[in-house]
């Protein structure tokens, strides 16, 4: 077990706790919290602040029958929502995104693989599998990109990112993250932009195609 050195920025943690982070980012932050004691404490501190707001906000009278109708339903059988458990290196939120199914990897060439978890107007989230020495593919050249390491590590100009580390890269960051020697690096990556065609190619090939 190595220490986590790159954490979720506090503003992002607050936005996650208050429920106002786009779904792909929320997935990555939930996965980071699953691995990081420190960010879990910060997240729960924000929930405590939310609780203080709830406690002190102006009240609104509820309908007469509401309480009895809820009390009447306490014993009603119900179907619990499916819950997901961590599997291997994949924390529960990733298993939730996969709906418990096995990962379907697609090759990007040079041994690099990806599995798209979601891609729509809210952005995209995907898993990446990068063999040692290969570059980490990026989503696009705009927006904010979050990359959480689940296995192995990668390095770029800004440092080394091991299991549990979260890299937050905005468009200003010029970097070429590369998987370190050792086991293949597996990452969870999210952006607020939908996936583009160029993202299906590893970074190495992009100059050749002038995309």
């Amino acid at each position: 077990m190595t220490a986590i050195n790159h954490h979720t920025p506090d503003a992002m943690l607050a936005a996650y706790a208050t429920g106002n982070l786009p779904q792909p980012y929320a997935l990555v932050v939930a996965a980071h919290i699953s691995l990081c004691l420190d960010c879990r404490a910060s997240y729960e501190a924000h929930l405590a602040a939310g609780g203080a707001v709830l406690e002190t906000c102006a009240t609104e009278a509820v309908s007469d029958g509401l309480k009895s109708s809820i009390l009447d339903r306490l014993d009603t059988p119900y179907t619990p929502e499916p819950t997901y458990q961590r599997m291997g290196v994949y924390p529960a939120p990733v298993m939730q995104a996969l709906k418990g199914k096995a990962i379907r990897w697609k090759s990007l060439g040079l041994g690099v693989r990806q599995s798209i978890l979601s891609s729509d107007q809210n952005g995209s989230a995907r898993l990446l599998f990068i063999p040692s020495g290969q570059a980490v593919p990026e989503h696009s050249h705009n927006g904010l990109e979050l990359t959480l390491v689940l296995q192995g590590s990668f390095s770029d100009d800004t440092g080394r990112f091991g299991v549990g580390d979260l890299e937050v890269a905005d468009q200003a960051l010029e970097h070429t993250p590369t998987a370190d020697p050792g086991p293949p690096c597996i990452c969870l990556a999210a952006t607020d932009a939908p996936l583009r065609f160029n993202t299906f190619l590893p970074r190495l090939l992009q100059p050749l195609f002038r995309i």
Partner: peptide, 20 residues
């Protein structure tokens, strides 16, 4: 507003908040 979920993370990062 923030804890009602009405502020984005960019908006939150520029605001004054509670000591946590």
């Amino acid at each position: 507003k923030a804890y009602l979920g009405e502020l984005t993370h960019q908006e939150i990062s520029t605001q004054t908040g509670l000591p946590l």
